[in-house]
Simulated scan of single mutants.
Amino acid sequence: MSRLAAAALRRVVTASRDTTSSRFAVSAPVSARLFSADASGEAAATAAESQDDSFFKASREGLAYGRFYSVIGGGSRLEKNILKTDIIHHLDRCGLSLDDVKIEYNKGYAPLAALLRFSSKAMFTTAIRQANQNRLHRIDEISRETWDLKKSFDGKAVLLQGVPRNALADDIERFLCGTNFEPPPFETFLRAGVPEPIRMMLVKFHTKTDAMNAFITKNRSFCLNSQVSMRVLQ
Rank of each mutant, 00 (worst) to 15 (best):
I128E: 09
T125F: 06
Q130G: 01
M123L: 13
F124E: 05
R60C: 08
A58R: 13
I72H: 09
G73Q: 02
Y105I: 04
R67Q: 08
I88G: 03
L83P: 02
E145A: 14
L78K: 01
S119Q: 10
E141M: 09
L83M: 12
L136C: 13
K121N: 14
A110D: 14
R77F: 07
Y65W: 11
D86G: 06
A127F: 03
I72E: 13
A122C: 08
Y65P: 00
T85C: 07
L63Y: 11
M123R: 15
A110Q: 10
R60V: 09
Q130H: 06
D92K: 10
G62P: 01
E145M: 10
D92A: 09
A58K: 12
I103S: 00
M123S: 15
S143E: 11
A64S: 15
Q133N: 12
G73V: 03
R144G: 08
D92F: 09
N132P: 02
K84M: 06
L96Q: 01
K80E: 14
R117V: 06
S59Q: 14
S59E: 14
Y65A: 03
L96N: 00
E79M: 10
P111M: 04
A64R: 14
G108L: 10
L83F: 11
I128W: 02
K107N: 12
R129I: 11
R93A: 12
I87P: 00
N132C: 09
Y69S: 07
K107L: 10
D86S: 11
A113K: 01
L91P: 01
G66M: 07
K84G: 07
E61Q: 12
I128L: 11
S143L: 08
Q130T: 10
D140F: 08
E141N: 07
V71R: 08
K84C: 08
G108A: 12
V71C: 09
H89T: 12
I142D: 01
L83S: 13
H137T: 13
Y105A: 04
S120F: 06
G62S: 15
E141W: 02
S97W: 04
